[in-house]
Each structure stands twice: as C-alpha cells, then as structure tokens.
Design a protein around this nucleic acid. Sequence first.
RNA 1: CGGGGUGUGGCGAAGCUUGGUAUCGCGCUUGGUUCGGGUCCAAGAGGCCUCGGGUUCGAAUCCCGACACUCCGACCA
Length: 478
Amino acid sequence: MANEKKVEQITDMEVDFAQWFTDVCKKAQLIDYSSIKGVFIYRPYGYAIWENIQNIMDKEFKKVGVENVYMPLLIPENLLQKEKDHVEGFAPECAWVTMGGSEKLEERYCIRPTSETLFCEHFAQVIQSHRDLPLKYNQWCSVLRWEKTSRPFLRHREFLWQEGHTMHATAQEARDFTEQMLNVYADFCENVLAMPVTRGRKTDKEKFNGAEATYTIECMMHDRKALQAGTSHYFGDGFAKAFDITYTDKNNQRVNPHQTSWGVSTRLIGGIIMTHGDNNGLVLPPKVAPIQVVILPVAQHKPGVLEAAQELRARLAAAGLRVKLDDSDNSMGWKCAEYEMKGVPLRVECGPRDLEKGQCVLVRRTDREKVVVKLEELEAAVFQQLELVHQGMYQRAKKNLDEHIYEAHTLEEAKAIQEENGGFIKTMWCGDEACERKMKEVAGMSSRCVPFNQEHLGDTCVCCGKPAGKMIYWGVAY
RNA sequence: CGGGGUGUGGCGAAGCUUGGUAUCGCGCUUGGUUCGGGUCCAAGAGGCCUCGGGUUCGAAUCCCGACACUCCGACCA
C-alpha cells in the first residue's frame, strides 16, 4: 500500500488540533512525560529553545538595569499568608512540604508557586533609603502549581519561567516600568519569536491576585484560541504595606515603595508551536532554533562531497550560526522529513552536481522554496534566507491574527461569531464583572484584555446595554 | 474535580467477547545495497502484557481497586 504508515506520523491539525500539538511535542523530541501527572521532562532539543529564549531575553533585562538573583524554593506558610488576596489566589494550587527527614515540621513549607512573598521579605531587609531604589531583580527558576489538568508547555504543574520583581520610589515610576517590561516582552515575541501580540490591560476579574493592575500580551494560535504569553503587574504599595517594606525619602519621611512583577514561562514554546507549526511538524523562529541550518550532503559516498559539506559547516559555524551536518546514512527523503518535523528553518543541500557547478541549494522550512547559491556567497545567502524565514513567519501569523479579530455588538452576535470562527471578538464593555461572567456563560469566552489601542465601536455594553466606554477583546483561552 | 476513551518490546497496533506457550509493522543491532523527498535484501536482539489485589489447575484475556495518558466540561493569579 502506497499510503501505508511506515514511520511515525503527525496528526493533521485540521483533523485534531490537540492531537497535532501533542504529536509535535513528542515527535520533535521537545518533551517527554514523567511518572507524575503534569510534570514534564524538557528534552535537549526543547530545553535548547528555552536556553536561547533565556539568553536573548536576559540581555534585554540587563539593558534596563535588572540584576539576576536566586531565591529559595520553599516559602513558610506564615510568609505566604501575609498578603490576603495573594494567598487566596494561590492556596488552592500550592504543594506543601510537611516532613524534614523523618520528622514532621513545626510549620509546613509551600513549594513556590511564585515568589512575591520571598522577594518582599528580602526587600524589607535590604531597602532602607531612597538611594536603594529602584531595585530591579529577576530570577530564572521553576515554580510549582498543582493544576488539575495539564498539557505540555501550556499548563505544567512544574514549569520554567523568569519572574522579575522591582521596587520603585514613586507610583509613576513603577507604573512606567510595568509598561516598559510589557513592551520588552511584546518586542521579544514579535522580533525574536515572530509572534504578533495584542497589548492591553487585564480586567479586575482576570488580574493577578494582589496586583493593582495586570498588563498582558495576548497571542492567537493557529486554532484561533488565545494564549496569554506574558504578564506584567503593578502592585502599588499593597505588598510593601503587608510586608512592612519602607524607605526613608529625601524629606526624611518613612514611606512605602511601589512594586512591580513580570514573568514569562516555557509556555512561550507552546505558543511558538501553535503559532508557526504545520502538518509537517514544528517550524522554529530562526533566532531561537537550536539548529538554524542543517546541511544535507547528497550522495555523500562520492569523492569530495562529504569534505565539501564539512567545509560548509565550518564556514557557517565560524559565521556564528548554529549548524548541523547530517552525514548519517539515512536516505535524503528521511532526512528532509526529519528536519522538517523538528522545524529547522533552513536546509542546505549539496551534492556532486552542485559542487561541480560551485553551488549549493538552500531550502526554507516555511515554504520549501529552493534557492541556488554560489558557494562563495553562502554565509550572506544563509543570513538573508533566515531573515526571510523570520519575516514570512511573522507575516503569516500577523495575517492569522488580523483576519480573526471580529466586531460584535450583542451577546448573541458574539456567541455566533465565536461558534463560527473563533478568534478574538472585540466589543464595547461597561466594566462590570457580571458582564464578563455572562459572556463566559453564554459564549464560552473570557475577557482577554482591554487593548491599549482603543477603538470606538459604539456606546453601549455588549452584555448589559448600559453605557460603555471601553473596547475589550474576548476569546477562548488556553 | 465530573463525564467519555485508552494503557500489550523504543513507537504504532492485533489478541480480550468465548481464559490454555506473546503476534504484526516501524524502529534498533550486524552485513551488504541505495542515496536530489521517508531505499532494498538478509540475519539478529528486545516483552514484570501500567501497577496492586481477587477468581481459576491456569489470567494480557474475567472481577475489584489504584495510577497515568487523552478528549469534553469546571477550575486555572
């Protein structure tokens, strides 16, 4: 049978998007399951993507004066309980350490679900004077949240992330920094991951427990569901008061500083998969791809071919690219399929016929477009093609986002559009939480954000018909 | 947490109704062959049938329980 399955296949995303996603995660060797529900193993190829994200993002953090620290894994229960809204939000999904060796502990310790409380305890110690501010800390670590359902990258019980925590002398400075970090995330998503985002503010219902304001970047996946890719919170001085963090200002007054926190996680990798992937597997943004270029020698047993391929590899590596030469004895077809499944952005084919002519062939992952280049122009051509791959990925994702933002004026209309098309639905909203619950009940959508770029679509709320001054985006979220 | 589905070498499956020596394809190893889109041939290795109880002379198969995966809900700062 011609269509008999000879090798592992990826389910088509049109057939079953969830299964497609799981197939890609497993078959591109990004992740593996462990023996505990919701706790995943990041395999080398998946972890390498995270390392690349870390490297690039960490440089951006440092540009705005952020320093890295490492805080403890465990939070004593009394510490966690100091800020009321915060503990209420996290208590249901905390995991606890109750034994030390064979002894029951006097006080149980929570395995950090996030580290605001630890940072606050420390800030109370180290902040004395206005000269100590601003204080901008970040840590790269894992956190634990006992989720009921889990999916690779999108919802783990343990996941890798970074959490930034900053303290500022004035509310305005803290607010500005909250927004600045949201923009760092947004720019990163667009320029590095080729993922267009919608920037906006979370409603009170959706904001972080204990925050005064939460800002978010929302992305649209290929199945038109929303993914919250990063958040940045303004805390005001709420935590500072709860944890008794004070400094002496220039007028010799004891006052509370103003605080922010912000984070992104390995969920970004889930976003990459669902934004760019296709039915042949993963498609990786060139800037974070563990292998940016794979060199496939054709008929490598023939004299000179392998040597030529090795030379190309050396040249590309010297040019600063992450390059792999596959000189295994698998067939060409096998190798092509393999590296497509793993999302390698660019392939270089070199065989005897090319080498005779002093050329090789570059093939883009995104559209399989082939470009013949002269060997002496290889480096320049590769950089150019990688840039084209990035641009192509961004344009395609942007089109998907733009084409699936719909406008609605009534609840019924919103529900119908959601059922028909999915995507983001923009409406006017009165600001009432009851209307958010209504939208969830009727149309199955939660509010995604109140976008910074506001449009005037009308004067009344989509849910209750009362006067409304804000435009809001709704969607089904991961 | 509620409802459905699933669990058999590394992967995908058959076998279970009607209990009786563990099957197939892919992958893996070795040798040869091929190489511009998942080559072909031959020989070989590999399995506490998810786990724990029970029924039975005998359990992958029947019964009870647990765990995990998965889908749909609820929940998810």
